[in-house]
Write a protein that binds this DNA or RNA. Sequence first.
DNA 1: TCATGCTTTACGGTTTCCCGTAAGGATAAC
DNA 2: GTTATCCTTACGGGAAACCGTAAAGCATGA
Lengths: 222, 222
Amino acid sequence: MFKKVLVAEDLDSISIAVVQVLEELQVPVIHHVKYCDEGLLKVKKALAEKEPYDLMITDLSFKSDHRKVTLNSGDELVEAVNKVQPELKKIVFSIEDKSYRIKTLFNELGINAYVTKGRNSISELRNAIESTFNNEEKILSSDLSFNFNDKALIEIESYDISILKLLSQGYILESISREFKDSSITPNGTSSIEKRINKLKIYFKANNNVHLIAIAKDFGLV
Amino acid sequence: MFKKVLVAEDLDSISIAVVQVLEELQVPVIHHVKYCDEGLLKVKKALAEKEPYDLMITDLSFKSDHRKVTLNSGDELVEAVNKVQPELKKIVFSIEDKSYRIKTLFNELGINAYVTKGRNSISELRNAIESTFNNEEKILSSDLSFNFNDKALIEIESYDISILKLLSQGYILESISREFKDSSITPNGTSSIEKRINKLKIYFKANNNVHLIAIAKDFGLV
DNA sequence: TCATGCTTTACGGTTTCCCGTAAGGATAAC
DNA sequence: GTTATCCTTACGGGAAACCGTAAAGCATGA
């Protein structure tokens, strides 16, 4: 079993259960942090001391409070950790169940397992830890099981996300066009952007921009 | 201390910690349900058997799964319980930290305490349980502490929520007006609705309808 | 009864969205 | 070099949103 595990989870009510699972699995060293920044720090320190972690379990969303932080989410934490210790195994344990979000975690951040917090997530988590230890790949908790090859949501690319983000921030077409020109993102004509939004509306069966953003929010795209 | 407590919480990773707290407080009978419907059932049964609960601790949001349910949220559970056992003490334990949501829980559903899930919520929860037992009123976890008399957010009422809901479903002003006329909701002139939306935009500092809905989604209003 | 103030509704002008069509420009095949 | 095709951009007309102002409806109190 793993020898040294880091848990990044802000809610104390949840971290208790996660640590319990690790104890049951006889993990000798278990560390727990409540902030992403702390997590990165611990990973770096362990690495410098030649006693690196061999597993990290992290949440995605962290509450913000008085404390000033540079890493705001589990995504950012994983990204940062990948730069210093890319071979570290990573399990994400979160309430998020939107396939688009989860896919990018596997495909772009290279996590090893994803477990949704749910009614039986503790046993799911235990299984995921064991499977990860056995070098299985792309482990998903059983209540999810969507098709990884499903093209549908993959086709929505970062360009679309940028548009949706700006729309959701109250930008009008012309402002988006200007913004794209400034950032040298192409295409950036108002007409092209308009057409792209139209495709999104057809794809998501949205009547208008307001509807579209509501749907995008539901999908966790923005 | 309380003699019989019901915990309604769908996430197993959290319920473990809640039950632990109750055990530490020497509560002799602790029941736990993962669905709101189950919760109501247990309250009714206990009442019929003349061994009613004296405290209920509930989450607000419950994940939906294959199972068909009539009560979808903690709010609905509390409302239903109030009809059969109004004197039952109620603590809400949720991640929600929006003041207007919490205020309505106290003012309209008569809950006794509200604890946000956070970095130190377990001790907060313990305190809230003890304070509730000592008949204190309107107990809030310390990281919240907003002013109960603050008018600002209370003014967003169900009428506004209805508008936001319909907007987020792609309705245009005229459709909303028709919808309201059909449901005899007043005011229902397009102009009045428009004005109300405008107020919301000012209040939430939104540039346009798209922006407004994005914000409303973030606030969990729709 | 009338005056007053508040809420609701109506109206008009401007901006932005919405949607179809077409022109310009790059690329690849022939 | 020409043609075909795709992608990007431009344009225009109608719908809806946006925003200020004014009228109508409806209470309340003198």
